[in-house]
Design a protein around this nucleic acid. Sequence first.
DNA 1: ACTTCCCCACTTCCATACAAGTCAACACAA
DNA 2: TTGTGTTGACTTGTATGGAAGTGGGGAAGT
Lengths: 248, 248
Amino acid sequence: MMAVSDIEEWKLDHSKAVSPQLRNVLRTRIIRNDLRPMSRLSEPELAKEYGVSRQPVREAFITLVEEGLLEVRPQRGTYVKRIDYEAVLNARFVREAVEADIVCKLAAEGSAALVKDLRGQISHQRAVADDTPEHFMELDEHFHRTLARAAGVGRSWDFLAQIKSQMDRVRFLTFEEFHISKLIDQHEQVADAIEQKSASRVEDAMRTHLREILSSLPRVQKLYPDHFEDSRGAIPGKSAQNSRRRIS
Amino acid sequence: MMAVSDIEEWKLDHSKAVSPQLRNVLRTRIIRNDLRPMSRLSEPELAKEYGVSRQPVREAFITLVEEGLLEVRPQRGTYVKRIDYEAVLNARFVREAVEADIVCKLAAEGSAALVKDLRGQISHQRAVADDTPEHFMELDEHFHRTLARAAGVGRSWDFLAQIKSQMDRVRFLTFEEFHISKLIDQHEQVADAIEQKSASRVEDAMRTHLREILSSLPRVQKLYPDHFEDSRGAIPGKSAQNSRRRIS
DNA sequence: ACTTCCCCACTTCCATACAAGTCAACACAA
DNA sequence: TTGTGTTGACTTGTATGGAAGTGGGGAAGT
């Protein structure tokens, strides 16, 4: 829908409030690795670039600091944070816990209309699997959001979206590490299990699905070591992230 | 530790950055119902009250809007949001899912030192049970944070803290609705189950513990209807919040 | 050559001024 | 009395100017 190169040229609508727009633009640029880790974002520079004053830029920074995408060192500069291995693992852990409960609710209450909707989305996903990865990620986002809304906890997904950015940064580093067709197959297994109203199967399917990133994360870190915080993860032996339930 | 009345007189340390302090003060005042729902918070007024300019106040507002505690209507005013019934239910749902997985991990990996720490905290909780409710809530916060850290997902608790404020507002409305001694007993059941390394029992204990608010929430809403959003919740029949697992 | 100190460019943070929109009260006409 | 138009005191959003702090480069002294 929107290629990476276009992001750099996004213009702001001066008839609306500028700060929120700027916040979204910068967040997208960071997640898509257009703004590299450790690079400095000076307020006046970005202000000139987008034709606004420093204040909206400042206010946009605040939220991004809260999301762990930026780090401001007072009187020194504002920098794009490197990917925090621990933060990724924690975000993934939270996401697995929440979405596991979501699909369990759906196995109990899910309607046939939902299953039909999901299957339509899945076929749509297959159609764009070989398209740009950005396109699939949008559909993936929509798929998981649909599950949350169907379970009656749509606002929970809004919360998850805040921490998901940590995981998305990893994805955008190397799409090759993520086999899209495999992810779509897992989506299908989730839909199947919901249709069969099997709570245990749908839970296993979702937990397996959300653990895919665990296998690729160490390789991504090896490939782009300077994109990651120097913390542990270099010693990812048994990273205390194996969740409670043995999968199949 | 800090009585409600003291909050209004919190002064800011002008040697450090002002915005974060102001943010914490305002958040606390909102959660503790010192700043009432629907009341207007004008930037220049608060600026004068705390002896700073409008800009730090504005920046403090941004985060609180993100947390769903404030609502700013452009060119009209900034208002304390009423408690959103749906948001409380969703926050509770997320918390249950995450903390259930946390204690399951602890049942598998938990150490004896952890159990000893928890029991110490519990006896401390009993000691202050008849003290001010604020004091118990601090200990309660510490207890749950300890569990997360022991499970190796300490940052996950930082994530949860963002949405927990929605639940805390309900608690601070009526402490009488929450029987502290009962909550402490449930803490003890969690500690017991961890010691016994029983995943199923500790999960049930935690889920039961975190569902306490569900029984009191409708009563609190009845008692303070104007503190709540006018949404559903007035029709809380089967509010789609009964989670996946039947308890005991 | 090496250490020490100072100055200056640069940053974020705060204060202040201006712009633009909203809403209520009020004057005024029918 | 009622309906209408307008003014003006509010609000938040944006722009800009200092204040305080950081760090590097260069000059001076040993």
